[in-house]
């Protein structure tokens, strides 16, 4: 029973990792850029959100306003950072996002502040009473609801990617920038859309993680937790991010409980990375990533 409890709570916390990983996947899919600033975006979104709420703005309006801020940010990033660096090597763009990471961390805390804010989005972090009476499992209600929210987000994103015109354009861009431009897809607008979408994902992740941990600087470090999820699932697969999140979450908790005591504990910090590395030996592109074909 205890094993099952650990397993399920691991799965649910894995969903939270997936949420952060999703933001990386979106941008990687559409531009091939590994966006290191995703963690800082989570922090910025969560801080903006919580400060809007503290000003007395209702929850839904605060969420929309924060999303607006993220869209403005996306426009600025595209106009001032991505546009001048078109056609530069990807490592330069990766480096750029590390600089952006510093910038956004500073910006978020300079505009708002560096205090720890409690965030209450109306879901309580208490055990699910019904389930406990029925099966005896202690599972947090909050985990379940955040998992549901994540599911909803994934379904929406999948529909956007696979069924709409914008989604088709996004997939075209991710296949080949030049070919996409030559058939008339406006690259710049696509990038704004993608960064805005990953801003939205950052907002959801920030709100949920913020409720759990409090909105503070450490939110931006959550991004590091998402990296093994990312490589396990494959950089360019939305489905991969979700499945890998579940695997990482569950195995990390189980590993800590069953392996931890033998080696002195604390293996949660690196266990996901080692696990992901093992899988990469077997499938270098991650579980769900596109197979890499190389030609000379």
């Amino acid at each position: 029973m205890f094993v099952l409890e650990v397993f399920i709570s691991g799965l649910l916390s894995g969903v939270m990792y997936s949420l952060v990983a999703l933001g990386f996947v979106l941008i990687f899919k559409a531009s091939g850029v590994f966006n290191f600033a995703q963690g800082a975006m989570v922090l910025l979104a969560a801080l903006t959100f919580v400060r809007f709420i503290e000003m007395g703005i209702p929850l839904w309006l605060a969420a929309i306003m924060t999303f607006g801020v993220m869209i403005v940010l996306a426009i600025f990033i595209e106009r001032f950072l991505l546009r001048p660096l078109v056609n530069q090597p990807l490592i330069t763009l990766f480096m750029l996002t590390i600089g952006l990471n510093y910038f956004l961390e500073g910006l978020a805390q300079a505009v708002w502040d560096a205090e720890v804010h409690g965030l209450d989005i109306g879901i309580e972090d208490v055990p699910w009473v019904g389930l406990e009476q029925a099966t005896g499992l202690l599972i947090s209600m909050f985990d379940v609801i955040s998992a549901l929210i994540a599911m909803g987000l994934v379904i929406i994103l999948s529909i956007v990617f696979n069924k709409t015109k914008v989604g088709r354009a996004l997939r075209a861009v991710s296949n080949d920038h030049q070919a996409a431009m030559s058939v008339g897809i406006p690259l710049n607008r696509i990038w704004v859309i993608v960064w805005a979408m990953s801003g939205l994902v950052a907002l959801v992740a920030g709100a949920l993680w913020g409720t759990r941990l409090g909105v503070q600087f450490s939110l931006s470090i959550v991004a590091l937790k998402a990296l093994p999820v990312l490589i396990l699932g494959g950089f360019n697969s939305i489905m991969g991010a979700i499945v890998a999140g579940l695997i990482i979450g569950a195995s990390e908790k189980l590993g800590e409980v069953f392996l931890g005591p033998y080696v002195g504990g604390g293996i949660e910090s690196f266990f996901p990375y080692v696990l992901a590395m093992m899988v990469l030996f077997w499938r270098p592109q991650g579980l769900f990533g596109d197979v890499i074909i190389e030609r000379v």
Binding site: G99, F103, E105, G106, L107, Q109, A110
Partner: peptide, 8 residues
């Protein structure tokens, strides 16, 4: 924080 921003 502003130092952070300028650095980035």
């Amino acid at each position: 924080n502003i130092e952070h921003m300028v650095f980035g």
